[in-house]
C-alpha cells in the first residue's frame, strides 16, 4: 500500500499541496483527478522522492522510500525520460543493465502489443509511440507499484485505445497503479478508486463501484457535484 499522509508542498510562497492524504492499494487502480495545475504531478514526484516536500510523510508498504524501493515502484512521467538518441533496443538494454526487476520477456510482449520496432530511435517516434515506449519501459519492470502521469494526454485516439487496453490486461494485474488525469472518459470503467483534488486538498476519495452501487452515480456525476456544487 502507498500511504500519503498530510503532504504539504510549497513552491516559493505558493502552497501547491496543502495536507494531502490518501492511500493506494496494491491490486487496485487509483486515479488522481483534478484540473491542470493542482499538483497531481507533484504528488507523483514526491512519492518517488524526485522533489523535496515541506511536511508530511509518504510510505510504501510501510517504509519510506530508499534506493531498493526503485526495484519495487516505478514512475512513468508524461515525457520520455530516456536519451532521445537511443534506439528502443538500447533503452531496453539500459533498463536491463540497471534494474534487477526488468523482465525482457514481458518487454518483448509489450513491444508487440504496441507494434513498436526496437530499432527505431526514440527521437524519431510520433507522440503516441513515444508515450508507448515510456509505458513499455515502466510496464516491463516487475514492480509492485506503477505511477503514471497523464498517460492519455495529447495523443491520438488509437494510441489512447491501445493504452487503455493495458489497464484491462495482465500487465497491470495484481499491481498497485496510481494514474493522474484531467480527463476521465477513457478509463472510467477501468479504475477502482478515485481521489479528487482541488486547491491543494483532497476533496473526495471514493471507490468507483461503490458510488455506482450505492448512489447510482458515475464518476463524472460525482466530479460535477464536487467541482460545481
Amino acid at each position: 500500500m502507498i500511504e500519503v499522509k498530510e503532504l504539504t508542498k510549497k513552491f516559493g510562497s505558493k502552497t501547491v499541496l496543502n495536507g494531502i492524504s490518501f492511500t493506494a492499494d496494491k491490486g487496485q487502480i487509483t486515479c488522481l483527478i483534478g484540473i491542470n495545475g493542482v499538483g497531481k504531478t507533484t504528488i507523483l514526484n514526491a512519492i518517488m522522492a524526485l522533489t523535496p516536500i515541506n511536511s508530511g510523510e509518504i510510505l510504501i508498504d510501510g517504509e519510506k522510500i530508499h534506493k531498493e524501493s526503485y526495484e519495487k515502484i516505478t514512475f512513468i512521467p508524461d515525457a520520455t525520460i530516456m536519451l532521445p538518441q537511443m534506439r528502443i533496443s538500447e533503452a531496453m538494454q539500459f533498463m536491463a543493465d540497471f534494474y534487477d526487476c526488468w523482465n525482457q520477456k514481458r518487454a518483448d510482449e509489450i513491444l508487440q502489443f504496441f507494434r513498436l520496432k526496437e530499432n527505431d530511435r526514440i527521437s524519431e517516434l510520433s507522440k503516441g509511440n513515444t508515450a508507448k515506449v515510456n509505458l513499455l519501459l515502466g510496464l516491463a519492470m516487475d514492480v509492485d507499484y506503477l505511477l503514471m502521469d497523464e498517460p492519455f494526454s495529447g495523443i491520438d485516439i488509437f494510441s489512447r485505445e491501445q493504452i487503455a487496453n493495458v489497464f484491462s490486461s495482465h500487465l497491470v494485474e495484481d499491481r498497485g497503479v496510481i494514474i493522474t488525469t484531467h480527463e476521465i472518459n477513457d478509463i472510467e470503467h477501468l479504475i477502482d478508486k478515485v481521489v479528487l483534488l482541488d486547491n491543494g486538498v483532497v476533496t473526495k476519495e471514493f471507490n468507483t463501484e461503490e458510488i455506482r452501487e450505492n448512489e447510482g452515480k458515475s464518476v463524472v456525476d460525482v466530479m460535477r457535484e464536487v467541482y460545481q456544487g
Partner: peptide, 17 residues
C-alpha cells in the same frame, strides 16, 4: 477473469468481483 477483463475492457478486479 483475465480474458474477460481483456474482452470487456474492464479492470481485472471487476471481472473477479
Amino acid at each position: 477473469r483475465r480474458e474477460l477483463a481483456n474482452q470487456f475492457k474492464i479492470n481485472p478486479n471487476t471481472a473477479q468481483r
